[in-house]
């Protein structure tokens, strides 16, 4: 019964997320609403960690697999993509690395200033 209950709770928050997404006129996807709601529920103690633990850890662990269909879907956009291929690859690679390094360095710099050790 443990997994039934855990799965039910996660599905319930997915549903609540979609409900909010339908009701509120903000550009926020259902998954983000659901994440925030579940976080608040955990924080306030409405949901206990052990009421979702195993199922939640399982879903987080298999996450990369869930992105495979999105990647495969790129093949259907090949006609539109190949015209822009070189700029596309350069913009994405350089832009992503730049963002990653700036973000990491700023965070790391502030943490170091506060004397947080690298564990």
């Amino acid at each position: 019964m443990k997994y039934v209950k855990q799965f039910m709770i996660i599905m319930l928050f997915s549903f609540l997320g979609e409900l909010l997404h339908g009701l509120l006129p903000l550009p926020v996807p259902a998954s983000i609403y659901g994440l925030i709601l579940l976080f608040v529920a955990l924080f306030t103690g409405i949901i206990k960690e052990n009421q979702i633990k195993e199922t939640a850890d399982f879903l987080v662990e298999i996450m990369p697999v869930l992105f495979i269909p999105a990647g495969v879907g790129l093949m259907t956009r090949w006609e539109a993509l190949k015209k822009l291929l070189l700029p596309l690859i350069l913009v994405i690679t350089l832009g992503t690395f730049f963002t990653m390094v700036v973000t990491g360095k700023v965070t790391d710099g502030i943490l170091k200033k506060k004397g947080v050790q690298n564990k």
Binding site: S14, A56, D57, L59, V60, L66, G73
Partner: peptide, 24 residues
Amino acid sequence: YEIGGSYINFLLTPATICFALPLY
């Protein structure tokens, strides 16, 4: 392929929501 792919996609929302647990 997409018939199966859409079932996998379906799990993305619940999986993203579960990020709440490690965050907590």
